[in-house]
Simulated assay, not measured.
Amino acid sequence: MKIEVLVTGCAGCRALYETVLKAVEEMGIDADVVKEESLERIIASGVMTLPALVINGKVVSKGRRLSLDEVKRLLNN
């Protein structure tokens, strides 16, 4: 599983990245978690609102700081 967290340096972005790492660890998922900070790559993905979460190439959330439970639900889908 490939998980990308599209972020800048804002507090909400950092929080989402940490939440994703915690969810992956707690669930025991074999995943490649990437923190994408390049604005060029983020814009190229079509996302204009951060933070955003991309799972296996699909944008599943944008513009929201998700809770641990919300991230776990998205990872289970």
Rank of each mutant, 00 (worst) to 15 (best):
R64I: 04
K2E: 13
V5T: 07
V24S: 10
K2N: 12
N76Y: 02
M48S: 13
L53W: 00
V5W: 02
L74G: 01
R14Q: 14
I3P: 02
Y17P: 12
P51S: 08
K72C: 03
V24N: 09
K62S: 07
R65N: 14
V54G: 00
L75G: 02
V5E: 04
L75V: 04
A15W: 09
R64G: 00
L75K: 02
V7S: 09
R65K: 11
T49R: 05
Y17Q: 10
R14S: 14
V71P: 01
E25S: 12
K2V: 15
L74H: 02
T19A: 09
A44W: 07
M27N: 09
K22W: 12
L39N: 11
A44H: 08
L75Q: 04
G12C: 14
V7T: 14
V60T: 01
L6I: 13
A11S: 14
S67G: 11
R14E: 14
V54T: 00
K72R: 05
L66K: 03
E4C: 05
L68K: 06
V34D: 08
G63R: 00
R14N: 15
V7E: 08
R73V: 05
D69W: 05
K72E: 04
K35G: 08
N56S: 06
R14K: 14
K35Y: 08
C13T: 15
T19E: 08
K58R: 04
I3W: 03
G63W: 01
R64K: 10
E37K: 15
A52C: 05
E36H: 07
E18Q: 13
E25V: 15
V59W: 00
L68E: 08
T19M: 08
V60S: 00
L53M: 01
K72N: 02
S67K: 07
G9W: 12
G12D: 13
D32L: 11
V20H: 02
V34T: 13
E36S: 12
C13P: 15
V59Y: 02
V34P: 06
E4P: 07
G63A: 02
R14H: 14
T49L: 04
V34M: 08
A15D: 12
C13Q: 10
I3Q: 03
M48K: 10
E18A: 15
G12S: 12
A23Y: 05
Y17K: 10
I42S: 04
E40R: 11
A52G: 08
I29T: 14
L39V: 15
K35Q: 11
R73L: 04
L50P: 06
G12Y: 13
E40I: 15
N77A: 05
L50T: 09
Y17L: 12
M48W: 09
A52V: 03
E40W: 13
M1T: 14
L50H: 06
A11F: 11
L50D: 04
E26I: 08
Y17E: 09
I42A: 05
V24L: 09
A11G: 14
V71Q: 00
N56A: 06
K2L: 13
C13M: 11
V34W: 07
C10I: 13
